[in-house]
Design a protein around this nucleic acid. Structure first.
Lengths: 215, 215
DNA sequence: GGGTATCTTGACGCAAGCCTCAATTTACGT
DNA sequence: ACGTAAATTGAGGCTTGCGTCAAGATACCC
C-alpha cells in the first residue's frame, strides 16, 4: 500500500532522515533515540514516523546496505587468503574489527536488533561462515569440534567487550580474540565440556536477543 | 549518623526487605526494579527508601556476603588443586559457573554494578586471581602473556553469553570458555595482536561499566 | 492564484522506573 | 490509655523514550 509518489518536500525529508539516521546509528547503535535522528535531520519526530512508520523500517532503509557491504568485504578477503587458517582467523578478526569500529554494525553482528532485511543478511553471512569454517577444518587447521554457532558466541563476546572498552582501551578486544584463536587451532584442542548448540537453540537465543531488554 | 535503635516494626520491615531483596537480586540481577522488592516484602516503596536510602545501600546490605562467600569458595577450591593449571582452569570455570547460576553474582563479577562493599570484594578477589595466575605461569602451564586484566575480559564475555543464553542453552558458555582455556595453555600461545591493559585502563573501563547505560 | 490533497508539527498520552513528601498510622514510654 | 516521636504510605513529580493526532502549513494541479 506504499504511496508510489511523494510530494517533493516529503521526498526531501525522507532523504534528510536517511542521512541523519545513518549517522546516528553508526555513532550510537541501532537503539539510538529516534528523536535525535529527527532533530539531526531538522525535522519533527512526527515526520520521521510519517515517512518510515517504525524504527525497524528506518533501520531497514539504511543499515542493510552498510552491513552487506562491510561483511561482504571481510568475507571476500578471507576467501582470497591462500591459507585456510589465515582465512578463518582473518575473517574473525575482520568481523570483530567491524564491531569495534561501528556500533551499528556491532548491533547487527551481535543480533541486538533483528529486522527483516538484517535477518536476510544474517542468513547470507551464515552460509559464508560455514564455508570458511569448513575449509579450515578440512585441512586440519581449525579444530574439528568448532561450529558456526560457536562463532556467533565469539562475536557476542566481542560485542560486549567493545561496547565497554571502546574509549578506554580500543584495542583490548584484540587480545581476547587472540587468545581465543589460539584455542581454536587444531593443535590446541582438548575435549570440550558441552555439546554444540543446535540451530534451534541458536534461533531461540537470537530471538530473545532481539527482544525487550536488549541489554 | 545512623540511628542505632529502630522501632520494632521498622526492624521487621528491614528484615523483610533484606530477604526480598536477596531473592529478587538473585533472580533478576542488581538492576531489578526496587518497587518489585518492596512489593515482595509486602511494604511500600517509600519504606524501602526509608530503611535503606538507596539501591546501593540495599545491595551493600545483602549482596556482599553472598558474593564473598561464593567467590571465596571457588578460589579456595582452586588453590587446593595440586596442579596449578587445573587450579587456574577450575577457577575460571568456577567463576563462570557462578555467573551462570545467579544474575546477581553475574553482575558483581562483571562489574555491572559498583558499590562500596562490592568494590572491596573485587579488590580481595583481584589479589587471589593474581596469585592463581602467577602460580600457573611459574610452572609454564599458563601462557606467560596472560594478565589478570585479561581474565576480567573472560568474565565479561561470559557475562554476556550467560545473560542471553541462560534459558535456551544453559551450557553454551562452557564451550566458549573451553575454547578460551585451550588458547591459554602455554603450548598454544602465539603472539598477541595488542598490549595488555594497564591497571588504569582497567579502572577506566570498569568505571564506565558502573555508569549509566550498564547495557 | 485558488482549492485540495498531502505533509509537517509539536504537544500530548503512555510506560517504566526513580525518588520524595505531606498525610496518616503505629509503637512505645510513662 | 494517652501523647508523641517514629514509621509507613502511596500518590505524584521527575526522566527518557515511544508513538499519535488534530491543527496548521505547504506543494501541486488546474
Amino acid at each position: 500500500m506504499a504511496k508510489t509518489t511523494l510530494r517533493a518536500d516529503a521526498r526531501r525529508n525522507t532523504e534528510k532522515l536517511r542521512v541523519a539516521a545513518l549517522l546516528v546509528f553508526q555513532e550510537k547503535g541501532l537503539h539510538a533515540p529516534l528523536d535525535e535522528i529527527a532533530q539531526r535531520a531538522g525535522v519533527s519526530s512526527g515526520t520521521l514516523y510519517n515517512r518510515f512508520g517504525s524504527r525497524e523500517a528506518l533501520i531497514d532503509a539504511v543499515v542493510p546496505e552498510l552491513a552487506a557491504q562491510s561483511l561482504g568485504k571481510v568475507a571476500k578477503r578471507a576467501l582470497a587468503e591462500r591459507d585456510p587458517w589465515d582465512g578463518f582467523a582473518g575473517y574473525v578478526m575482520g568481523v570483530c574489527e567491524l564491531q569495534a569500529s561501528c556500533p551499528a554494525l556491532n548491533d547487527v553482528i551481535s543480533r541486538r536488533y533483528a529486522s527483516e532485511q538484517l535477518t536476510v543478511i544474517c542468513r547470507v553471512t551464515e552460509e559464508r561462515e560455514r564455508y570458511i569454517i569448513e575449509r579450515a577444518q578440512r585441512e586440519g587447521l581449525l579444530r574439528a569440534d568448532f561450529t558456526r554457532e560457536d562463532l556467533l558466541f565469539v562475536f557476542w563476546s566481542t560485542a560486549m567487550l567493545v561496547r565497554h572498552s571502546a574509549d578506554a582501551a580500543p584495542d583490548a578486544w584484540r587480545r581476547s580474540v587472540g587468545f581465543l584463536l589460539d584455542g581454536l587451532r587444531a593443535g590446541a584442542a582438548h575435549p570440550l565440556p558441552a555439546e554444540p548448540l543446535t540451530r534451534d537453540q541458536m534461533e531461540e537465543v537470537m530471538f530473545r536477543l532481539g527482544e525487550v531488554g536488549a541489554i
